[in-house]
Nucleic acid binder design. Structure first.
Length: 642
RNA sequence: GCCGAUGUAGCUCAGGGGUAGAGCGUUUCCUUGGUAAGGAAAAGGUCAGGGGUUCAAUUCCCCUCAUUGGCUCCA
């Protein structure tokens, strides 16, 4: 057979001589396409555009428009960065340099040289210079012995360590210009594609992600085929910064930190306090409808409870050190579950009582590592939208489904559509170590969880080895404005703690039976959720959540009394309104109200006073014209319904 | 916890070996102005804290604390 049949994405089948490369196929289609080809996909495997095709395949040519094309591009950019660094700083040791979602990085051991952001410009310049050589990325298969001898001679311990783990016959080198790297590929045809380069930041990163290993210097960068795209990207980063909850939280006076209070211990300012209260009102309403009971528990407990729960031996590191009272150690609670279990156990339970759903916006304290603290998203004192459901095995699926329904309801209420549902499972190899040693129960509950998810038709991904120690869980992942990933909400199955706390109910046969427990926190913690909402809404809270809903702006102090009257009437209707009595012009008052992101401005002057009406302007500039005060109040109340 | 950066007025930031500056905000006065900034004056800082070098430190060096970009961690 001297020909291969290549199927293109549009379904067209074409015959080419055996050994044809994706680049040659591109040439046969159009020269312009060939110029833009970065790599290719052969039956779902991404390869160099210069790969010889030896059998019938489906082929997709990858360009900058494809995510996989971008990944190839950035991977090659990482090699270009390494080449530039090696030229400028001879003797450095290279570790790894992969593409990431936006750009790429390379981990480098600079030895004694201190590399900093001040050096970026010189490196970028060198990269541009090298890119202009249009150096071809050449792939070469090498034997393990040859690979070892190459990097031994070069003196690169990191590459040698990587090679140790590779099988002979699977090792490839890529060379562009004077630079050769151990690499699986694929790469773009030549460096000339890389036109616009920006190094973004440096960071410390442990070799192989292990904190016991040496810390290397990681350099992050991004590249584009066109300068306009780089500019656009940098602009986008700037825009994202404006949405950062830390910036908005300060500007809108939501929360603050104080050195005397301590790191990771947020103080909620009145605006933040209002938002929290509204969130709680909403949660309590929804949970009441869903059959939850509210409970209250103390912030501390004796050591013995956390030994019983299993938290202490495993999670001591994450708890504040104990305080000794009357010769006994007490801990600040890092979670509410043990307290709730004690409430379940306080009175005897019949199967007729189940399911029992205990809810509490409980305040917890976690000793997060200092380097982990991040605005409101990662703190040391937190209030969870917590609840524990105790149910029978037969009730489990229904209850679990009910919890998921609650999640979806919340997402709709807050307009959350960008999230990933992660179904975290155990790793059977770690039973008895990371996970409680009850293999059948793991299999059974994971199957139940999957069944519920499938039945509800929600989108989710399954991940191994990320379950809680007492059972599988579902996490909702979201991203902060600056792209950091967070678990917003969590929903966990627990078949272990009932045993540890000797929780039981009496079943129909008058026997003792263990309940299954569901831990759930769909609205996350106040801290993380408000942080998330600040970014989600870019500070423009919907009317029902806005700390200030209406501001009344008298045109001059001649109308101060009328403005006061309007403000008082609104306040009496339970609307969060205030009056701006400053001796400023209307334009100034409007501007300040706009900056404060207050949803409605009510402007009152001569006309309004004479007619007893109000003029309404929405945040953003929409003029709603003049209306009766009562009509306006009803409109707000209607929009603000929780 | 680790590597790097940063810390100057309430906020955003400039400055720099000879004990500090702007804009916004605040207060007071003038102005009574109709949909994104009217004018003037004043108050406000142990230049994060501690130690060192120096005739002299906010500036240079060291330590601590905090913030921050990442890494590790995240019940």
């Amino acid at each position: 057979m001297s020909h291969v049949v290549i199927t293109l994405p549009d379904g067209a089948k074409k015959e080419y001589p055996i050994g044809v490369t994706p680049m040659e196929v591109a040439m046969s289609i159009s020269e312009g396409l060939a110029r833009n080809v970065l790599s290719a996909k052969l039956n779902d495997v991404v390869v160099d555009a210069s790969t010889a095709i030896t059998k019938d395949v489906s082929l997709q040519l990858l360009t900058w428009k494809d995510d996989e094309g971008k990944q190839t591009y950035w991977h090659s950019s990482a090699h270009l960065l390494a080449e530039a660094l090696e030229t400028l700083y001879p003797g450095i040791k290279l570790a790894i340099g992969p593409p990431i979602q936006n750009g790429f990085y390379y981990d480098i051991d600079f030895g004694d040289h201190k590399f900093s952001a001040d050096d970026f410009e010189a490196v970028e310049k060198k990269m541009i210079e090298l890119a202009k050589n249009n150096s071809v990325f050449e792939r070469k298969e090498v034997s393990k012995a040859d690979a070892i001898s190459y990097f031994t001679e070069k003196g690169d311990p990191y590459k040698l360590e990587l090679i140790q783990d590779l099988a002979d016959g699977s090792i490839t080198f890529y060379t562009q210009g004077n630079f050769t790297d151990l690499c699986r590929g694929p790469h773009i045809p030549h460096t000339g594609h890389i036109k616009s380069i920006k190094l973004l930041n440096t960071a410390g990163a442990y070799w192989r992600g292990d904190e016991k290993n040496k810390q290397l210097t990681r350099i992050y960068g991004i590249t584009f085929p066109k300068k306009a795209e780089l500019d656009e990207y940098l602009m986008m980063l700037e825009e994202a910064k404006k949405r950062d909850h830390r910036k908005l939280g300060k500007e809108l006076e939501i929360y603050t930190f104080d050195d005397d209070v301590g790191p990771g211990l947020p103080l909620w300012l009145p605006n933040g306090g209002t938002i929290i209260e509204l969130l709680e009102t909403y949660a309590k309403k929804v949970e009441k409808e869903a059959g939850y009971f509210r409970v209250k528990t103390p912030h501390i407990a004796r050591e013995s409870m956390y030994i019983k729960s299993g938290h202490l031996p495993y999670y001591k590191e994450s708890m504040f050190p104990p305080m000794e009272i009357d010769g006994v150690n007490y801990y600040l609670k890092a979670m509410n579950c043990p307290h709730h279990h004690k409430i379940f156990a306080a009175t005897p339970k019949s199967y007729r009582d189940l399911p029992i759903r205990l809810a509490e916006y409980g305040t917890c304290y976690r000793y997060e590592q200092s380097g982990e603290l991040f605005g409101l998203m990662r703190v040391r004192s937190l209030q969870m939208n917590d609840a524990h459901i105790y149910c029978t095995e037969e009730q489990f699926e229904r209850e679990f489904q009910g919890v998921n329904a609650l999640y979806l309801k919340h997402f709709e209420k807050f307009g959350i559509d960008k999230y990933v549902m992660r179904f975290s499972k155990h790793d059977p190899a770690k039973l008895g170590k990371k996970y409680i040693d009850m293999p059948e129960l793991w299999v059974k509950t994971e199957a139940m969880v999957r069944r519920v998810l499938d039945k509800m038709g929600v989108n989710y991904i399954e991940v191994e080895d990320e379950a809680a120690f007492y059972g599988p869980k579902i996490d909702i992942q979201v991203w902060s404005a600056i792209g950091r990933e967070f678990t917003l909400a969590t929903n966990q199955v627990d078949f272990a703690q009932a045993e540890r706390f000797d929780l039981y109910f009496t079943n129909e046969n008058n026997e003792r039976e263990r309940p299954i427990i569901i831990h759930r926190a769909p609205l996350s913690t106040h801290e993380r959720f408000v942080g998330f909402l600040l970014e989600h809404y870019a500070g423009n809270f919907p009317v029902w959540l806005a700390p200030k809903q209406v501001i009344v702006l008298p045109i001059s102090d001649k109308y101060a009394d009328y403005a006061e009257e309007v403000g008082n009437l609104l306040k009496k209707s339970d609307i969060r309104a205030s009056v701006d009595h400053r001796a400023e012009k209307a334009g100034k008052k409007i501007r300040d109200a706009e900056v404060a992101k207050i949803p409605y401005m009510v402007i009152v002057g001569e006309k309004e006073q004479a007619s007893g009406n109000v003029s309404v302007r929405m945040h953003g500039g929409t003029d709603l014209g003049t209306m009766e005060l009562q009509q306006f109040a009803e409109k707000i109340l209607n929009e603000a319904r929780i």
